[in-house]
């Protein structure tokens, strides 16, 4: 795999993960447990969609086949999507929503932090802007994990269940494949070993404070999102997300 090919792939992964998690969070619009939480969730969701846009735009330039950011987001099918499996998991209860967010935010934070020093200036620029948002997302989701984990008996039980349910999707975050390795060697992407170490360190620290037990490091993990092999949820997300663009292709007025 050449570096140029890897970069296109890598940018789509960043964009798709942001996009799908943003879409998932937007499902809670009008349904959040409190007005304050609703605003906060939508802020995070729109931050992610905004970041996705930046990655898609860069990817579109490199792919250079006439597709723009919108077409990459709304005209690709599930097997072309490269998002992490974690991001497509359903919202379920608030413990799962926040647990998913927390596992993602830790990965996102350390990934973006590393990308600010990327040898690719465009990547470094987008990452620098996104990192500020991700830092806040991480603070918010870790507080929630601690609050629920170290809260009431019921909140603790639910938060632990969320960790147990989601754990099987976390391996993908810190297990590198060829694309990740090519990017790391080129100085474009993060060093996979360091990323895994940082992710584990912070997750363990927060879960300990939250009186929660992490899953086993050698637990069996679902992978494949980065290669377009998704859980059954992604198709439904895309069906809803892409409906308008599919039904009225190239419409310019809504």
């Amino acid at each position: 795999m050449t570096q140029a090919e890897a970069l296109k792939e890598y940018l789509l992964r960043l964009a798709d993960s942001d996009m799908i998690l943003g879409q998932r969070l937007c499902e809670l619009c009008g349904k959040a447990p409190a007005l304050e939480e609703e605003m906060a969730l939508m802020n995070v969701a729109l931050d992610l969609v905004g970041q996705a846009r930046n990655w898609y735009e860069y990817a579109a330039e490199l792919i250079d086949d006439g597709r723009d950011a919108d077409k990459l987001a709304f005209r690709r099918d599930a097997h072309d999507y490269r998002n992490l499996l974690l991001t497509e998991q359903p919202n379920e209860d608030y413990a799962v929503t926040m647990g998913r967010q927390f596992f993602f935010d830790v990965w996102h934070y350390f990934t973006l932090k590393s990308l600010t020093e990327s040898s690719d200036e465009r990547v470094a620029g987008i990452a620098a802007k996104a990192l500020k948002e991700a830092t806040y997302h991480l603070r918010r989701s870790s507080e929630w994990v601690k609050r629920l984990g170290d809260g009431t008996e019921e909140s603790h039980r639910r938060m632990q269940e969320a960790v147990d349910i989601l754990w099987r999707f976390t391996g993908e975050l810190i297990t590198p494949d060829d694309t990740d390795r090519v990017m790391a060697e080129a100085g474009v992407g993060p060093d996979p070993d360091q990323l895994a170490k940082d992710w584990r360190g912070m997750v363990n620290e927060v879960l300990t404070q939250a009186t929660l037990t992490p899953g086993a490091e050698d637990a069996w993990m679902y992978m494949g999102g980065k290669h377009g092999e998704h859980t059954e949820h992604l198709g439904f997300i895309l069906a809803e997300m892409q409906f308008l663009q599919r039904a009225y292709p190239d419409a310019t007025t809504w």
Binding site: E36, E37, M39, A40, N43, R139, R140, E143, R147
Partner: peptide, 13 residues
């Protein structure tokens, strides 16, 4: 539920 959450909610709202 606590001051930290109040701060975050205030920031977001």
């Amino acid at each position: 539920s606590d001051a930290e959450m109040a701060m975050e909610n205030a920031r977001d709202l």
